[in-house]
Simulated assay, not measured.
Amino acid sequence: MTQVDFYILQPGGRGNRYTLAARLAEKAWSSGHRVLIATESKEDLRHMDRLLWVHRDQSFIPHGILGKADPELNPVLIGTRQHAGDEHDVLIDLCLSTPEYFSRFERVAECVDQEPGPLQASREKYKFYQGCGYPLAVHNIS
């Protein structure tokens, strides 16, 4: 069954949910996992792509856009909520509602910041996962 982790940036925490997604993608990739970052829109997809290029000066996260980049060369892919390709390892979810394909992933990481709209959407997603019986964990991030 899919493990769902909510990573919650505390008030005054470093960055936003996009920078948190970059941190989680780097950690998952460096641990040998394949990652799909699901975004709400093409604009968010482009923002995440740019962010992964400049995330940290000392490192590079090999990434590309789902459907355009070679998955063999890019263990981190960025897509929109509509498609997941063949990915099934780690899903980092930046969407406002749960992508339909979430349950085929081993792990789902929900990135939560203090923005009112996304924060409320994350609360609804938590209730959904809980109601379906998925194992949940909450991590408070400063």
Rank of each mutant, 00 (worst) to 15 (best):
A84W: 00
Q10L: 14
F6C: 08
P135S: 10
Q114E: 12
P135T: 07
T19P: 11
G64W: 06
R23P: 06
K27H: 13
V108A: 03
A21I: 03
Y101N: 00
F6L: 08
L36D: 00
F60Q: 11
D44M: 04
K27D: 10
Q3M: 11
G67E: 01
Q114D: 10
L77S: 02
V76P: 03
A137L: 12
V90G: 00
P99R: 02
F60A: 14
D49P: 01
C95G: 04
L96D: 12
G133A: 08
S103N: 04
R123I: 08
N74T: 14
S59F: 11
A121F: 05
N16R: 12
Y101L: 01
I92T: 02
P71G: 08
E26P: 10
D86P: 02
G32M: 14
Y7K: 10
P118H: 09
Q120I: 08
L45G: 04
T80C: 01
L20H: 05
C132D: 11
D49K: 03
G64H: 08
N16I: 09
E26L: 15
H139E: 09
G64S: 08
V108Q: 05
S31F: 15
P75N: 12
A109K: 06
K125P: 08
D44I: 03
K125T: 06
N16H: 13
R50Y: 06
D57H: 11
D57G: 14
G117L: 11
L52K: 05
E106M: 07
V138F: 13
S59I: 13
P71S: 11
L20P: 04
S142H: 13
G32L: 15
G32D: 14
Q3S: 12
V138S: 11
D5E: 12
A25T: 10
L119Q: 07
K125Y: 03
V35K: 01
Q130L: 15
A28E: 10
R123N: 09
R107P: 07
I65K: 03
R34Y: 06
L94C: 02
D49S: 03
V108G: 04
S30Q: 15
G13F: 07
V138I: 15
V112S: 11
R17A: 06
Q130G: 10
G12L: 15
P116Q: 06
R34P: 04
P75W: 14
L91T: 00
A137R: 15
D49E: 06
H139K: 14
F60C: 14
E124M: 11
A38Q: 00
H139S: 09
E100N: 07
E87N: 04
F105C: 00
R23Y: 10
G67F: 01
N74K: 15
S122R: 06
E87G: 02
Q3I: 11
C132H: 13
I61G: 13
V90R: 03
L24M: 10
G13E: 13
H33Y: 12
K42G: 04
S122V: 05
A28Q: 09
V90Y: 04
D93T: 05
D5W: 02
G67M: 01
L36V: 01
D49M: 02
G133C: 08
Q3D: 13
M48Q: 05
I78Y: 00
I8T: 14
L91G: 00
E40F: 02
G79R: 00
L136Y: 06
G32Q: 15
E106T: 09
T19K: 09
